[in-house]
């Protein structure tokens, strides 16, 4: 039971972490809670279905399952990336100089718009996502499915890539500089608008991957999945310390574990309650999150 909940929790948690990264990176740069981020994840799941159908029609799925999987992820992630960048251009950039509440309201509007748009385009019913990865094995009393392993490994890989990008590359460093002092970043020659676009792009790529993975895991997709997943990932980001990239990873994993253990040992029906109770508790007792600011602003 313990081991089983641990495995389930880590699977769920790594997906939360991927989505939470998008919230936290955007918040780090422009101090906006992008409420439409969950919808990007939902669009990723739908795009997974579309890409899968396309792969089947092209005969790719008969040639190689691995290649199909790669194609589905690639398509969904790129599609979501385009959505994220466009969203920023249309809904947030024109409000860059506006009072802080305006982009927040714009984000809520974007979220409602995307949900309804997908509902009209794809229908309100659940859509089935074909199982691409089957099998699994027993570890003592617990069972690990191949799809769980796949989700954990892929998430880990993506987070490692992100970490390397942010730490080592010129663009990644410029992203951190912009998050720390946007005006100064402009004064050293960084094109801040471009960095903001890149931030939305990366967050949306990760959300797209998360969308496909959850669709693979549960086998069902509907237009509403982005809402709950979005709020949970937001909770994970706040738990880790909003604006903090390692914090989002940690917060996501912790939230997944808490939910899984709560569902296993207390009651599965209260699963969502745990997440939101955490959100309230963190906001009351430790609003800066677990990994809040680490270094003083000035000497």
């Amino acid at each position: 039971m313990l081991l089983q909940q641990l495995i389930n929790g880590l699977t769920l948690g790594s997906v939360y972490a991927l989505i939470a990264l998008g919230y936290t990176m955007v918040y780090g740069i422009i101090e906006l809670i992008n409420f439409a981020h969950g919808e990007i994840y939902m669009i990723g799941a739908y795009m997974g279905i579309v890409a899968l159908a396309a792969a089947a029609a092209l005969g790719l799925s008969e040639v190689s399952a691995a290649l199909t999987l790669l194609g589905v992820f690639g398509a969904a992630m790129l599609y979501c990336g385009a959505y994220g960048v466009t969203m920023e251009r249309v809904a947030y950039r024109p409000l860059r100089q506006a009072p802080r509440l305006s982009p927040l309201i714009s984000a809520l509007g974007m979220s409602i718009f995307l949900q309804n748009y997908v509902m009209l385009a794809q229908g309100a019913r659940d859509k089935a996502f074909p199982a691409l990865i089957g099998g699994g094995f027993e570890v003592g009393p617990a069972r690990v499915t191949a799809i769980q392993l796949f989700i954990m490994a892929t998430s880990l890989l993506l987070m490692f890539l992100l970490h390397t990008f942010v730490r080592r590359t010129r663009l990644g460093k410029a992203m951190r500089a912009t998050a720390q002092d946007r005006r100064m970043a402009a004064l050293v020659g960084i094109n801040v608008d471009q960095i903001i676009s890149v931030t939305f792009l990366i967050g949306s790529l990760l959300a797209g991957a998360a969308g496909v993975m959850v669709a693979l895991y549960y086998g069902l997709v509907n237009f509403f999945i982005g809402y709950v997943a979005g709020i949970k990932a937001f909770t994970a980001a706040v738990l880790g310390g909003i604006g903090n990239i390692p914090g989002a990873m940690l917060g996501g994993l912790l939230l997944g574990l808490i939910e899984s253990f709560g569902a296993g040992y207390i009651s599965a029906e209260y699963k969502d309650v745990f997440a939101f109770a955490i959100l309230v508790l963190v906001l009351i007792f430790r609003p800066a999150g677990l990994l809040g600011e680490q270094v003083p602003q000035r000497a």
């Binding site: 460093k173 410029a174 951190r176 720390q180 005006r183 100064m184 020659g189 960084i190 680490q294 270094v295």
Partner: peptide, 19 residues
């Protein structure tokens, strides 16, 4: 001065040479 507080000295200098 507006030093980037959570970048290292070297990274701060690298940002100066961003272009």
């Amino acid at each position: 001065r507006r030093i980037f507080p959570r970048l290292t000295v070297r990274e701060n200098l690298e940002m100066g040479a961003f272009l």
